[in-house]
Nucleic acid binder design. Structure first.
Length: 567
DNA sequence: AGCGTATGCCACC
DNA sequence: TGGTGGCCCTACGC
């Protein structure tokens, strides 16, 4: 302790220090409180520099305090404690340590949202049967449902086909959007065309077989392009819904665009009146374009006459955003909507009116997307901001609660396009979905956000796709309707992934190797603190080789990059 | 390397 | 019930 005589002759300064700092010798203590304590011996240079800075700051504060004392002012307290940047409390720190993110222990788990543990020790992160919460499910059939069921069942295969995880996937990248990508759509007939919309309202057309061949239409919308759909009647025409309140109809060859609807004909009159269009869908049987706005209303437009049919219908909580619409592929009069009122709702288009929904599927947070399964239309998959994918195995069964909840990191961030889990339209068993992952993992020194392939019948993580060069999050993903191709929108960039052997033209261009992990074999969480297994000095090549080996050892042929894959 | 910023949901009053 | 401040692992540009 500093001598009392000296102490009393100086102003009273209270210094809070890091609790983990150690006092190295009593001699140093004699130097006075303004000298910072030495850190542990193995601390690096950076730490020392920080200490020096703190020392200077401290001394300056000390002098000021001294002056203040002379003028009779109150003593001051200087805190040298490192505080958690999340909860501002001392004793721990949150944030990236290298490529691993350390959660604040005071907050609920960032992954499953339950208190008492962090992401690192979350059971949903460690187990191989990845994050499934069983939900009760009863299969009730009434006579009408039986008829529907008989109509649909032949379209559902009883046995899951064996599909294959490719060892490697190649990736082609392009960046022409100046704002983040919001939606993607594959061309219905031309296998190499990908359409993309962005936050600025631009529409991109990319021929990814030629990689650098792209067109960007920038004058169709003035702000966020939220959803788009190809015209069922003409595959050279795309409809798009935007936050500027219009539906556009664009010819992809010429870029000529016409407006089907404008909800803000009088321009900007303030946020309470400005209507934005989010959800969009086309009922091909009825030739109707369906759109929904940010106030809970659904609009129908006849795509032949471009005339709005009927009045807007309140389909979600008044004033809430309706972000998704989907017509059942088998029975297009069945409509699924979802939005910010935490519900996905099923409707019969033949009797559409407020509060007349057939079913209301409750969620704990905003529902980013809700889709019928692509072939039979008998399952429902939703993505909610509570970090759970929800699956209803049969729309003819009990829809009171989901058949499964799959914990998966995809929650909300205002700077990211909302995540949407998408079906694989080629999977005849209707059990594979793709969804981007929010939280990163330390893949040998790099924090990466994989794109996850999840078997929604078991909740199992089947494959994860990532590239050491792509460090951004990929919230927007779409699987090709016919080919073994995955498209991703990540920040302002677009990526096309396909199995190595299938990458022909692009390989000589701007292509990259990436790795695909088999979900089962990954060791993490419990193994070591950095969330990865212990050979952390491996480089990317080793990483790749290792996982290929693991995949083969497992003999598991569960993933798919399309049922067409032959190996 | 470090800061500013674009921005949406939600809790809180 | 409406307005508002605060964030939870962003991404990019200066």
């Amino acid at each position: 302790m500093a001598p009392q005589t000296r102490r009393t002759s100086f102003p009273k300064v209270l210094i809070e220090r890091d609790t983990d700092s150690e006092r190295s010798s009593s001699d140093e203590e004699e130097e006075g409180e303004e000298e910072p304590q030495s850190e542990e011996e193995d601390d690096g240079d950076e730490e020392e520099e920080e200490e020096t800075a703190l020392e200077n700051e401290n001394r300056k504060a000390y002098e000021e305090a001294s002056d203040a004392k002379k003028k009779g002012k109150a003593p001051i307290t200087i805190s040298l404690k490192k505080v958690c940047k999340v909860c501002k409390k001392a004793g721990h720190e949150a944030g990236f340590k290298g490529a691993t993110y350390i959660d604040c222990p005071m907050k609920p788990c960032f992954l499953c949202k339950m208190p008492g543990h962090t992401t690192m020790s979350c059971p949903h992160r460690v187990v191989t049967e990845h994050g499934v919460i069983p939900a009760p499910h009863r299969d009730i059939q009434n006579p009408v449902e039986f008829v529907f069921g008989r109509q649909l069942k032949p379209r559902i295969t009883r046995f899951k086909p064996a599909y294959v995880i490719p060892d490697q996937v190649h990736c082609a990248a392009i960046r022409y959007h100046s704002r983040r990508v919001t939606c993607l759509e594959f061309h219905p007939t031309n296998n190499n065309i990908l359409l993309s919309g962005d936050k600025k309202g631009q529409l991109g057309v990319w021929d990814f077989a030629k990689v650098h061949e792209k067109t960007v239409y920038g004058n169709i919308h003035s702000c966020i392009l939220n959803n788009m759909r190809f015209s069922p009647a003409n595959d050279g025409t795309i409809y798009a819904a935007s936050s500027d309140g219009t539906i556009s109809c664009t010819d992809l060859e010429t870029g000529m665009s016409s407006s089907l609807m404008n909800l803000n004909p009088d321009g900007w009159q303030g946020p309470s009146t400005w209507r934005m269009l989010y959800g969009m869908e086309i009922n091909s049987e009825k030739c109707v374009v369906l759109v929904a706005d940010n106030f809970g209303f659904l609009y129908l437009v006849d795509s032949r006459s471009n005339i709005q049919t009927g009045e807007p219908i309140l389909i979600h909580k008044k004033g809430s955003k309706v972000v998704g619409l989907h017509c059942n592929p088998v029975q297009p009069d069945l409509l699924l909507s979802c939005g910010n009122d935490h519900f996905a709702r099923m409707w019969d288009m033949r009797r559409l009116q407020a509060a007349s929904s057939l079913y209301n599927l409750e969620h704990r947070r905003v529902v980013n997307s809700a889709y019928f399964s692509p072939l039979s239309g008998s399952k429902i998959l939703t993505t909610s901001q509570d970090n759970r994918l929800r699956v209803w195995d049969s729309i003819f069964g009990n829809l009171e609660s989901p058949s499964r909840e799959i914990v998966h990191s995809h929650d909300f961030n205002r700077h990211l396009t909302p995540f949407r889990a998408e079906w694989d339209p080629k999977d005849s068993s209707e059990s594979l979905a793709v969804v981007g992952r929010y939280i990163s993992e330390n893949y040998h020194g790099t924090a990466l956000h994989p794109i996850d392939f999840i078997d929604i019948s078991t909740g199992q993580l089947v494959a994860e796709v990532m590239d050491p060069n792509i460090t951004t999050i990929s919230p927007v993903n779409k699987l090709h309707p016919r080919d073994d191709v995955l498209a991703s929108g990540s920040s302002r960039s677009l990526f096309i992934w396909r199995p190595k052997e299938k990458f022909e033209v692009a390989e000589q261009m701007d292509s990259r190797k990436i790795v695909v992990f088999g979900g089962q074999e990954k060791k993490r969480g419990g193994k070591s603190q950095d969330g990865y297994d212990d050979d952390s000095d491996d480089d990317t090549n080793n990483l790749k080789g290792k996982n290929v080996k693991l995949l083969k050892k497992s003999g598991k042929r569960t993933s798919r990059y399309g049922h067409k894959a032959k190996r």
